[in-house]
């Protein structure tokens, strides 16, 4: 087993499992704290709403399990947002690996830019990022209404309404706001890189 994918009430873990299989990695989908803790890598995916996802994680004690992980961890979309400190979505206290807020897009000055952002947008990779430099200026697939502002942990930037974090990294924690499992060849390049960390 190359990675554990955390199973919870937010989203489509099957897509992540399929994406890993396409790059030749074996993943196990689980909510068993023991399996997660022993895994060489952990992926924390997600599609959904922050407060109900957090409530589910707390109920199953997965929040503390995630916080204590020493192996490389990849948060995806809502998974990335839940690794932050607080989300405006449902006024939710999150896991807090990244001491950052998650804010709702405000399009009052640009009503033609719709919320959620849905579709393919370009990313700019920052120096030292886990996102391979070859992915710079390439497109990734985003679906979200909330965002993480630019900060010292930002490892890729994108722009929709304002520039914000497309990816984050700190110690053994990595995260993408976009869905690498749905981002074509660019996404597969990023997943392969994560599996080599």
């Amino acid at each position: 087993m190359d990675a554990a994918i955390i199973k919870y009430n937010a989203g489509n873990v099957f897509s992540v499992e399929c994406a890993l299989r396409r790059i030749g990695a074996e993943a196990i989908v689980t909510d068993d704290p023991e399996v997660i803790t022993r895994a060489p890598r952990v992926i924390f995916p997600g599609v959904g709403e922050a407060s109900s996802a957090m409530a589910h994680l707390r109920e199953h004690h997965l929040d503390s399990v995630i916080k204590s992980l020493q192996c490389p961890v990849l948060g995806i979309c809502i998974g990335m947002q839940l690794l932050c400190k607080h989300s405006q979505e449902g006024d939710t206290d999150c896991i807090g690996i990244f001491d950052l807020p998650v804010l709702r897009f405000d399009n009052s000055d640009t009503p033609e830019l719709k919320i959620p952002q849905m579709g393919w947008n370009t990313i700019s990779v920052t120096p030292g990022s886990f996102v391979p430099a070859e992915c710079d200026k390439r497109f990734a697939y985003f679906v979200h209404s909330y965002y993480v502002p630019l900060n010292m942990h930002t490892s890729a930037v994108t722009d929709y309404i304002i520039p914000y974090s497309a990816a984050l990294q700190k110690d053994n924690f990595y995260a993408t706001q976009f869905h690498p499992e749905k981002s074509g060849d660019t996404g597969e390049t990023i997943l392969k890189k994560f599996m080599e960390l």
Partner: peptide, 8 residues
């Protein structure tokens, strides 16, 4: 399809 393609 989910197994075969890497787009939504």
């Amino acid at each position: 399809v989910a197994q075969a393609i890497n787009i939504p």
